[in-house]
Design a protein around this nucleic acid. Structure first.
Ligand SMILES: [Zn+2]
Ligand SMILES: [Zn+2]
Lengths: 454, 454
DNA sequence: AGGTGTTCACATAGTTCA
DNA sequence: TGAACTATGTGAACACCT
């Protein structure tokens, strides 16, 4: 087929319009720009053969997109229908009643309320005064929403807008990509590095090496393959019929977990190379602390609240366990709160959890028990711990920059102390329970060791 | 200015083309679609006065966008340049080394790794086997990244990809807008409602009324204007020079907070209408619990970790306070962990915090102190508490649906109990400290009352 | 000039299809 | 499987108004 000449005329010349509109011209499409409905419907119904536009070549992608949009037709129909439906039915700004554009700062709201909250969210509500005489009771409606700052901002908060949905400067920088490598641009990095350099013989100065990456890869892989069922499978609940069954049930489930932890530890060369006595001591005095690290990791949703509620049955079961053992004890509060605190610090970071487990394992004297025997080769243990601590440090530096890592480390150290305190009192608590209920024969030997019974 | 008639003719009719092209027609633009270069250059150089298109009215936004895009021209150049620049330099997929498209699931990665993780993140790593003989040590590089599932998924985790960044079904539904009003579409709502209806005389069945909204508005406004400085101002730290100064300093700062709380309570009509004795009793026995609710709200960044670290100085100061008072006590752990737990439950929701404060205020017997005297008008207190509980319930239902609200309520009730336990032992702790240090004369009367000293 | 509200640009979720 | 798409919700910028 011979190529036809195709042209577009865009005109406001009345003579020409009249001339063309009056007689039927073949192979010609007419769009009356003054009749928006016609424009819309013609484009949407694809009654014009727009596809010939696709024959155009060498147009850059931007223009391609324009034509593409014009060419897609029935999809836009759907979309338009849906959008119209939505907008006319339920997309109402909860603050001013205007047409909402979506969720802004966690509240269904319009663009102006979004902008307003973004501007004023950090202002002091106390310093703003209600402009009208109706004391802080101005109606915020579409027409006069910008009359009174005080009442508008207040309504934003009242409808649930959250200042914490406003990105911090740090978060903006990361998004913008100026800081895709957060470890490069940290301005105060030298300062902090030096602090550590002075104390710690420069072990914290490098970044992650290729070798470190392989170690992380391996560790994390081992950790996940050993414990994944623990995280994703349905948690088995403790039998709560009475104290005896509860204790035995607890002992059995923790015996399983302990075996998994030991299996994991034995994959670490530095641990496996120690002599048997030292391995035994490290397990005996540190395993209880490891429980809480591993149990606080779970791989559910990011949303804090929903994740905790998904775990609710498990938590409730745990609470009742302590309650069955000793209703007057506040052991439960201590344990569960430590776990919640750790969940925040560990922040669902699998690498962090798997490394921290090893670091805790190699802790000497962590149990703060005066009876803890000396290690034969405490130097190796110290070296191993330093090595993994360094890897963890570098991993976090690489991931989130030095400033944040510094703070996170400080807090993790605090938590390790809490973890230890908690383990000690838990050990006493459970020992008392076991003695009182005379279930010692039914506790597995491994758990007896961990509880320092034998 | 009178509106001109504007039209577009698209034609392949040679007669018409010839006719128009041969004579100069005013107010008309001609585009020859067979000469792509002409089309491109005309569009890009904007030599056609497209702007008259802006005169079009009532076109829907989609079409506006098409025209708008046609009007923009040189900006795309810039953008393309910048994107190329970035992508060629520093955007390397941390998993396979391919060109990254940005952060996916918290790791700088390419589109294929993004899709891969999205597909397999919830698979069991243990069940996947490493395909090659190199045991779980396959190199994941651009060319052969899809060889071994096991090692690829593992590397995703190792580089820090997070399953919790994958939206849950619930979150997707909310975004898509099918559930802009979460209270409408809840399938199991009747079931839960009935549970509550049976127990609670149907008070939980309605949705938020206009009147409720005004109450929320007022309450939340009062709360914010009274406590905002507490949240946003620089927290004043406790003087830690020695135990005596620490206790006095603690007493003074909490005296201020107590006065603010009382000020807030007196804005509640139901409280103000009680007789003086009842008001006194409620304050005396409940104020200590209220401290922890109010202090656990802060309005910093959403990011969990960064927000906690911003608060770190305050937390550390608090820890040292307990340490100065009694280094052997684990009071600190209890208090701080309760606060961290509450921060999660209250989820930075200002309305929730302000209502919960009132609900706790109206609690009778919350202090679980056998000596707590009976109220004169306990019915009014009960009614007030029911009223605000109902409003809170409806607010949460409206915001997040019934299922989640049910779970959140259950957990909040648990926390209220913990809060009470904590308050009681805190009262004992601080009383012991005050007696031991003989600082009772320097403790303000209000704090003495709250501590049940007087 | 500073406040307001619309629109643009962008990041990163999910989704689709060859 | 992975490139290319859509969708949502951020911040930023602009044109307008007082
Ligand atoms: Zn609005
Ligand atoms: Zn990749």
């Amino acid at each position: 087929m011979a190529k036809q000449t195709k042209m577009i005329f865009i005109t406001s010349n009345e003579d020409l319009v009249h001339q063309i509109a009056s007689k039927q011209v073949e192979d010609t499409h007419i769009i009356d720009l003054d009749d928006p409905k016609q424009v819309t419907s013609m484009i949407n119904n694809n009654s014009i053969n727009w596809t010939f536009l696709a024959g155009l070549s060498e147009l850059d992608s931007k223009n391609d997109q324009i034509y593409k949009r014009a060419l897609d037709s029935h999809q836009d129909d759907q979309e338009k229908q849906r959008k119209l439906l939505r907008k006319s039915i339920d997309l109402i700004c909860k603050i001013c009643g205007d047409r909402a554009i979506g969720f802004n700062y966690d509240v269904l709201s319009c663009s102006s309320c979004k902008a307003f909250f973004h501007r004023y969210a950090h202002q002091d509500l106390k310093k703003l005064k209600c402009s009208s005489r109706n004391q802080n009771q101005c109606k915020i409606v579409n027409g006069e929403r910008s009359k009174c700052h005080r009442c508008r901002l207040n309504r934003c908060f009242a409808m649930g807008m959250r200042t914490d949905f406003i990105l911090s400067q740090e978060e903006i920088q990361r998004r913008k990509g100026f800081e895709k490598n957060p470890n490069i641009s940290s301005t105060n990095s030298t300062c902090i590095s030096q602090t550590f350099n002075n104390n710690d013989k420069n072990i914290f100065s490098e970044s992650l090496t290729a070798e470190d990456l392989i170690v992380i890869d391996t560790i994390q892989s081992d950790f996940l393959s050993i414990f994944q069922n623990q995280f994703e499978g349905s948690k088995e609940l403790i039998d709560l019929t009475d104290r005896v069954s509860a204790l035995i049930s607890w002992s059995e489930s923790h015996n399983k977990l302990a075996l998994l932890i030991i299996k994991y530890c034995r994959l670490i060369n530095e641990f496996e190379n120690l002599n048997a006595d030292d391995r035994f001591i490290l397990i005996k005095y540190n395993l209880l602390s490891l429980f809480s690290v591993i149990l606080c990791y779970n791989c559910k949703s990011r949303n804090q609240s929903s994740s905790s509620y998904q775990e609710y049955d498990g938590v409730e079961n745990k609470r009742q366990f302590y309650s069955v053992c000793d209703p007057s004890s506040d052991m439960y509060t201590k344990v569960i709160n430590l776990m919640i605190s750790s969940m925040e610090t560990l922040n669902q970071d699998l690498v962090l959890v798997s490394l921290l487990t090893i670091i805790l394992l190699f802790s000497k004297g962590l149990s703060m028990n005066e009876n803890e025997p000396l290690l034969n080769d405490s130097l190796s243990v110290y070296r191993a711990q330093s090595y993994y601590t360094k890897i963890l440090w570098n991993y976090l530096i690489d991931k989130q920059g030095e400033m944040k890592t510094y703070k996170q480390f400080t807090r993790m150290l605090t938590e390790i102390f809490q973890r230890q305190t908690c383990a000690t009192i838990f050990r006493e608590f459970i020992n008392i329970q076991i003695k009182a209920s005379q279930t010692i024969d039914q506790i597995t030997p491994l758990i007896q060791t961990v509880l320092h019974i034998s």
